[in-house]
Amino acid sequence: MPLSAYLVVSVALFVIGLAMVAARRNLIYVLMGLELILNAANLNFVAFNRENPGDLDGQIAAIFVIILAAAEAAIALAIVLNLNSRIQSIRPDDADTMKD
């Protein structure tokens, strides 16, 4: 398949993730949207690596993105659980303690 087919899939995935982050008022959905956005970036890395096959830098960058996504998911879930036990809500709008 040509490179542009993969880029179209990647853009569509990115847009879906962006809409999920923006539209949903639930922190878990925001995290799921972030995972979709990171996956779209990864697909780009790997697709461009196939077009420039001199080395494997694209695939290795994708592996680092996966590592950081795992760390981010662990930290973010811990923050969500802590927030839930403090203000009994996981809506991003409700976390405004530091505004006062």
Partner: peptide, 12 residues
Amino acid sequence: LLLFGLMLTKPS
């Protein structure tokens, strides 16, 4: 992890 987060919180 996400599923555990869902199970331990209440959906708004």
